[in-house]
Design a protein around this nucleic acid. Structure first.
Lengths: 252, 252
DNA sequence: AGAAAATGTGTGATAATTTCACAAAAGATG
DNA sequence: CATCTTTTGTGAAATTATCACACATTTTCT
């Protein structure tokens, strides 16, 4: 596959769906015809499907996150992308890691290197995404009741399941953070799961875009002292980042 | 939603993707414009996405089965559809059931009534499909390693997980059957899982299209005596169906 | 190195599809 | 029953896709 085609693929994967005119503007070094042919090529390889006036990412599990939660998710897409890229750089080969549910985690899944990894996750859509798009990682899904809102599982026996799994690095997402309340989420089940993960992982990396700073959700699952690193985006206020660092947390 | 729109939706869900001309021929009582407007309507509700000259089912998990296994799956689509419809009729409300992995099971998932059901499955794509498209069923995913080929999980501790789950009816798929070898599949892990399910379920219903009769795969997981009912399609030879009945198995 | 072949790219004509505005028909409301 | 709203059909106009061919670039072979 050519470099241009790779680039187009990546662009569409980031955006979800694009119009041809958008692509011709983005890749203005080439003619519309060439891009059109590239889309045809990429469609044949099942990387995307062509729509009326453009193309759309081949929706495997992607649609489950982006499609479900709706437009809201797309808005902070660039922030999350930035976070995902930074977080992916922290992933070492042959590591045993946990990947949380959520759209940021989905983006991280996409950015992961196609190498030997053991990836445990409670998000079946993310697990499927990885298994379909990469050849090398091993994916372990946690069992349990599948939650409609979050597309993640939670079971009464999570602790049992984690007992035989040794997780080195856990990538955890939060929906809210304030200094006084710590990291919080909207669901009770998620909260329990995240706590268990944090307790068992050697290293905890929190993924949180700046729009979630200074908001509080019903259930707190962690404090600053529980985590090792926070990956956030460039729009995060310097004051909060300084406070993180003061608490001994790495900030990226 | 109108009846015509429902019908179009169902038609597209069955076919996977369709052209507009195909639809105008199928729904010739209405004009192209009307159908076009219906597609727009259905797209807004995220039931499908419109493509160059037609529409395509909103691929949540569907693509995982059809997209992965390729065209082969589409071929026996009608047979599998027939089986799924027959099997769905066997599902009672408030039942605890198991749904196997595989494209026939996916179709059954689609045909399930949107009622109170506890559905345990090893196929995360099927679980997601159900949870996204229906409001009432509860889905329980079995945990374990996610297999690339089958998109199903298998864990060392399946037996532990099943211990606390009481499954009334298990819908199990087989990839091959002969009188001498019984029901067989291609993977060792699947084989173990299916055995465990069959051992624990009160009633076992086997789903198998006629193309799989008289073929042998590496691992046998059940004999006729293990199952209660076989659901197959109208192309199944009468002789085999008679043999099933002679062994005390219901045949639908 | 140079010719031949294969592949990739751009152009404009042609064909197909989609959109749009508006009129006709069907249904709802008082 | 008149009137308003919603749904449906029609054809023209705009947009988008396809195709054939010319030109450029890269690869292969002698």
């Amino acid at each position: 596959m050519k470099e241009r085609q790779e680039a187009i693929k990546r662009y569409i994967e980031r955006k979800g769906d694009v119009t041809l005119s958008e692509l011709t503007k983005e890749f203005s070094d080439w003619s519309e015809m060439t891009i059109r042919r590239d889309l045809e090529f990429l469609e044949q390889r099942r990387f995307l499907i062509r729509t009326k006036r453009g193309a759309r990412i081949m929706p495997t599990s992607y649609e489950v996150s982006v499609g479900m939660y709706g437009e809201r998710e797309k808005r902070n897409c660039d922030l999350k992308q930035e976070i995902a890229a930074k977080a992916a750089a922290l992933v070492e080969t042959d590591i045993s890691m946990y990947l949380d549910a959520g759209s940021t985690a989905m983006m991280l899944a996409r950015e992961l290197p196609d190498r030997n990894l053991i990836i445990t996750t409670s998000a079946p859509n993310i697990g499927i995404e990885i298994v379909l798009k990469k050849k090398n990682p091993t994916v372990i899904l946690l069992g349990g009741t599948l939650q409609r809102k979050t597309i993640s599982t939670c079971g009464l026996n999570v602790l049992d399941q984690l007992k035989t799994l040794n997780i080195d690095t856990a990538f955890v997402c939060a929906s809210g953070y304030t200094e006084s309340t710590g990291f919080s989420v909207g669901g009770q089940h998620e909260c329990v799961l995240k706590r268990a993960i944090i307790a068992s992982a050697r290293r905890v990396i929190m993924l949180m875009d700046s729009s979630k700073l200074n908001s509080i959700l019903p259930f707190t699952f962690a404090q600053l002292s529980d985590i090792d690193t926070i990956v956030t985006d460039s729009k995060a206020p310097e004051s909060i980042k300084a406070a993180f660092r003061a608490a001994g947390v790495h900030v990226l």
